[in-house]
């Protein structure tokens, strides 16, 4: 602060300041290196390197000399990618998770938003309890949640056999939405907390005028609160889209409850089963295409919501 007041009229002071700044800069370089090196090295090794290796592997193809010859990996250009684009089970799985996401993400985020707004309104008593109750499922790992709901859907063991005997939640028609329910159950509370934190950060003076003018809570929520928390909603939307495309644990568990979930049910299940064939090169190509697809979709959502906010 005080250094700002130093005038150029005192050249001697300026010189000392400069030398001090210089030594500071060299010290800082060592310090900065110390701070950023551990993360940067690990990030390069376990984020960037795997991506590069996956891209490299996806460009290889296995060739055999004759039918029983020793297999060798040779450079195959985009051979694997041509296979990816012709593989109908891959595109079926992408379409399946997209359909899942179009329904599940809005339902989950809508519910999270509604609950966050209710927690933030004066309409509800016992906020602390509700906040914890809704957040609790987030402490249940996806695999465990799927195991649990598997029992709850079961026609014999469920507490709700009256319903589960009538409706087959694990049949081919419904199982995708049964999985959607498991994902929703786990993540509503998590998204609710993110949105609720954003709501708490709004100074209450902003809507006190509206309240004095007689605006209802619903009106305040719609016209004032929701526009102000758009960044938080965007964040939750992006994470949800990523999660949907990467769906794995829940369908993997459901495979042991029902034959309706096949080993190509979601893109990641397909990648896993392709890699265990083993056809690592094709699996790598699937991974690369899926990652690019995920990235493109998240980026589009980000840009779309940003433009809307302007």
């Amino acid at each position: 602060m005080t250094t700002d007041i130093a005038t150029p009229a005192t050249p001697k002071k300026a010189v000392t300041k400069k030398t001090r700044a210089k030594t500071k800069a060299t010290n800082n370089r060592a310090a900065v290196l110390f701070f950023i090196a551990p993360f940067s090295i690990l990030f390069s090794l376990f984020y960037i390197l795997p991506i590069l290796v996956a891209i490299y592997q996806s460009l290889l193809t296995v060739e055999r000399e004759g039918t029983f010859g020793k297999p060798t990996e040779v450079f195959g250009g985009f051979v694997q990618y041509a296979r990816v684009f012709q593989d109908s089970s891959f595109w079926d799985s992408i379409l399946r998770v997209l359909g899942f996401g179009i329904v599940q993400v809005p339902v989950m985020l809508g519910l999270a938003l509604l609950l966050a707004l209710l927690l933030d309104s004066p309409l509800v008593k016992g906020k602390r309890f509700f906040r914890l109750a809704f957040f609790a499922p987030y402490a249940v790992p996806g695999v465990i949640a799927a195991v649990m709901w598997g029992f709850l859907y079961s026609p014999n063991l469920s507490p709700f056999t009256a319903i589960t005997k009538e409706i087959n939640f694990l049949g081919a028609d419904l199982v995708l939405w049964s999985i959607a329910n498991v994902v929703t159950w786990v993540f509503v509370g998590y998204n609710m907390i993110i949105i609720y934190s954003a709501l708490l950060a709004i100074p209450s003076e902003i809507y006190e005028a509206a309240r004095l003018d007689g605006a209802s809570q619903a009106r305040i929520a719609w016209s004032i609160k929701i526009p102000l928390i758009t960044p938080a909603i965007t964040l939750t939307a992006i994470f949800s889209i990523i999660g949907t495309l990467q769906l794995l644990a829940e369908p993997q568990v459901f495979k042991s409850f029902t034959s309706a979930v096949t080993s190509t049910y979601t893109p990641n299940l397909l990648i896993y089963s392709t890699a265990s064939v083993p056809n690592v090169n094709l699996a790598a190509a699937f991974s690369v295409v899926l990652a690019l697809f995920t990235f493109a979709l998240s980026f589009t959502v980000l840009k779309f919501t940003q433009r809307k906010a302007d």
């Binding site: 984020y47 795997p50 592997q57 890699a275 995920t294």
Partner: peptide
């Protein structure tokens, strides 16, 4: 640049890295 690369990493989900990590 460094920060943007790390931010890109936020958008790469852990599950997408599982098979590439296995390859490494």
């Amino acid at each position: 640049t460094l920060f943007n690369v790390v931010l890109g990493g936020v958008l790469v989900p852990a599950t997408a890295l599982a098979l590439p990590l296995f390859l490494v």
